[in-house]
Design a protein around this nucleic acid. Sequence first.
DNA 1: ATGGTGGAGGGTCCA
Length: 278
Amino acid sequence: MNLPRQQPVPPPKSTHSPKINMPIIASFNVNSINARANIVKEYCQSQKPNILGLQELKCVNEQFPADLAGDLGYHATIHGQKSYNGVAILSQSPVNVIANQLPGDSDGEARFLWVEYNGVHIINIYAPNGNPKESEKFPKKMRFMENLTQLVRQKLLYLGQPLVIMGDYNIAPFDHDVYDTKALADDAIIDERARQYYFALTHLGLVDAFDIMNPNATDRYSYWDYMAGRFQKNQGVRIDHILVNGLMADRLVSCQIHKKPRIMERPSDHTPIAIEYK
DNA sequence: ATGGTGGAGGGTCCA
């Protein structure tokens, strides 16, 4: 049957629709919070995230920039460690801290922070990098991902509340998440065993916010190595992720990678990723 | 070309 094609009807133009401020949750591996305090400050002032998960603080709690959160009107929940790792959550109002260690983890590193904020469960992770693969670092990465998967399977699936697991996963899920699979052939971030843990999480019902909100996006990298002009050549990888459960997926409005902090002076090698939800 | 860069901390380790 040849039916006349219907003209698409444009949505009604509202010149004065009320601007609803939807909550924003963001994740940013800062590679030293003290080196990046100004960039974090600028990011909070321009994007106004309700929640900002930070990774790789590279300092103990006492060294976390004292005035940063207060000046911005944020609360800081900090789980620091000397020189390496370290995670924190900046929040516009206080959060309930549920755990600061991944159940089952015996490595004793500061890579995990679980809080509840306005009925949303938020887990901020800094997964081990895993390089070089023949060293003890790779099994450490596998243990971390195994413990995280077990936590989802045994506890988080039964929360009955919105859930966000965000941070530096140090896993590029798909070949199109890296600029060159050959150059990274031996890298733990594209190792199939590591990827299987990402897929395990998605098979358990978690949704990759960036992937679902930006199908076929070409601009998808969240990290560019400092070396060899990787950023200028846009030779990056997507290893920072925001995974959400179904209750949160229903509320997603956008997921964006914010590139500006990577362009500023003395940047981190990562840049933030953020979700907006209703 | 096993380099290149950047942070912590004051050796090298880590990414």
